[in-house]
């Protein structure tokens, strides 16, 4: 009896392994192995123009060049972090709030043509990001549709969206008469950039990319919110209505708390995705004007394929990896999905 159970158990385990084998091989070959190899390369001086076995070990030199040694490598990386930080700061809240709002709207029982709206809102998400980027280049031209729309509202000249390196905060300060950096900001440096540069705010071109990214992702996020909303039992909503809660109260005290796990998920996915922005930068600005749309993910490409420095490129990738993990953990503390 005992022996039989073991035999059964082991053959079951064997069959189990057999079934997961294709996925394990696939993941191992195309995910874990390249990751391990990239990690190995980040400690080497590899140009990417020879087989990697011919590279030499350089210890932490690639990481030092990015974080400690003064130089273009470090200041470019710092610029990338700065730009991407403003990008995340703008895109994550915007896409979350708009997607949530849209989900609530298309979830209304009385709304007509729900199917149409759901499809329409989801459409940008299934369109190629390069194709969308090219369309946006036309929209954001100085004589393009966006400017034609907002021009009557603006006191200034038409905005040159795609070729304007001025930061938002710098622009606002200029309005109140601050054109030069105060000495304190000018002379305090972090990662090779002075605080004045850190505090520039996103450039106009980065703004255009942020709008584009928000527009393309809200569809997917709306779908996730919609699934969450439909997971809330109608009885709960009805019970609170019977108890005399108004529509606003029901949203605030019933819907919102029950959506917390979904919200956490959307924020996490958003945070990870926005720290990896690449294709829009590649298609629209290639890091310009004046490096204001460089992002770490774009720097990986730039260092690796244009600068012939795969070591630095992979090191950027791993610093970005650690950064994303840390930020996600911090966010988990702030928006705890368990504490509803």
């Amino acid at each position: 009896m005992h022996a039989l159970r073991i035999r059964l158990g082991s053959s079951q385990a064997f069959v189990g392994w057999l079934f997961v084998l294709p996925v394990l091989v696939g993941l191992g070959l195309f995910l874990f192995l390249p990751m391990l190899m990239a990690f190995w390369i980040s400690f080497r001086d590899w140009t990417g123009l020879t087989p990697p076995s011919q590279s030499s070990f350089v210890g932490l030199a690639n990481y030092r060049a990015l974080m400690l040694d003064p130089g273009v490598t470090r200041s470019d990386f710092a610029l990338g972090l700065r730009n991407n930080f403003y990008y995340v700061l703008g895109v994550v809240p915007a896409q979350t709030v708009i997607a949530f709002f849209l989900a609530v709207v298309v979830n209304q029982r009385f709304l007509k043509g729900k199917g149409f709206f759901r499809t329409a809102y989801y459409f940008p998400s299934i369109t190629s990001s390069i194709a969308v980027s090219l369309i946006f280049i036309f929209l954001f031209q100085r004589n393009g549709a966006i400017n034609a729309l907002i021009d009557p509202l603006l006191p200034t000249d038409r905005i040159n969206w795609l070729d304007n390196a001025n930061g938002l905060i710098h622009n606002l300060l200029a309005v109140v008469g601050v054109h030069e950096a105060p000495a304190f900001l000018e002379n305090t440096r972090f990662l090779g950039l002075n605080l004045w540069t850190w505090l520039s705010g996103p450039s106009m071109t980065m703004y255009a990319i942020m709008i584009l990214a928000t527009w393309t992702t809200i569809g997917t996020l709306m779908l996730i919110f919609l699934a969450g909303l439909q997971g809330i039992p109608t009885e709960v909503d009805e019970a609170s209505a019977v108890d005399g809660a108004s529509a606003v109260q029901r949203f605030r005290f019933v819907t919102l708390p029950m959506m917390k796990p979904t919200l956490f998920f959307v924020l996490t996915v958003g945070l990870i995705g926005t720290w990896q922005v690449f294709d829009q930068v590649f298609a629209i600005s290639t890091g310009g004007p004046q490096k204001t749309t460089l992002t770490p993910a774009y720097l990986v490409y730039r260092f690796g394929f244009r600068g012939s420095d795969m070591g630095a490129a992979t090191a950027v990738a791993f610093i970005l990896f650690v950064l994303i993990i840390v930020l996600t953990l911090i966010q988990r503390r702030v928006v705890d999905p368990e504490e509803a």
Binding site: T47, G71, V72, T73, D76, D163, N164, A165, N166, G287, G288, P289, Q290, K291, R302, R306, G307, S308, D309
Partner: peptide
């Protein structure tokens, strides 16, 4: 020279700044 791309990028960004007037 090899490895000069970073410096060239800096020069290009600077030229954009000159043309843009900042």
């Amino acid at each position: 020279a090899p490895g000069f791309q970073g410096a060239l990028d800096t020069l290009n960004a600077g030229i954009e700044g000159l043309a843009g007037g900042n």
